[in-house]
Amino acid sequence: MGPGIIEVLLEYWPIFLQGMFGTLKYAFIAVSGGTILGALIALLQLSKNKILHTLSLIYVNVLRGTPLLVQLYIAYFFLPLVFPALDVIGKEGTVVLALILNSSAYVAEIIRGGINSVDPGQSEAARSLGLSAKHTMTKIILPQAIKNILPALANEYIAMIKETSLAGTLMLYELMYTRTILANKYLSWQPLFIIAGIYLFLTIVLSFLVKRLEKRLAVSD
């Protein structure tokens, strides 16, 4: 069996801490990048241009309909073959890029859903006043949609914290990768429970914060 969980934690806590920060960092980059890209995809999905609409639909469905692990492997092993320019961002950058693309598909759905949740009468009233399409979106629709979008984005971040564990298999230094490090020290099972505990801690704390955010946003209704 070897040493106990507590002993391992006491001895190797800096490794786990670094892994935890890695996880938070990669999840944050993925969702932030995914939000910018996803907003663009959502606008394309809502666009009246049939070609743009269809392309964005395919994009979202492919990325949501295939496992992230497969996407990461394709990014890691295949993309550098066809796009040697990706060398610039390195293996790590390529994996992060895959996380961003994956997240963007989910965020696009979140934003599209948020926009669609706003009563069409709001847009009609704005346009009937002579507001431009742009002003209608920025001044009327988005400020109302954000109430639905923000908590969903926060939940996407929580989901991404768990998803990034897959990137650990591709040598990104995040929480799951600490298992690989410590396996070299003949610690086969202890790190798994520590890792699981840290994931659980992160998701519970963040879920609690999202609940409070939702409550605060609901007050203005």
Binding site: E124, A125, S128, L129, G130, D221
Partner: peptide, 15 residues
């Protein structure tokens, strides 16, 4: 449209 005011059944005021 700026010169055509419209009032809706469901008010559609901006909440």
């Amino acid at each position: 449209r700026q010169k055509i005011g419209m009032v809706f059944q469901q008010f559609n005021v901006f909440p």
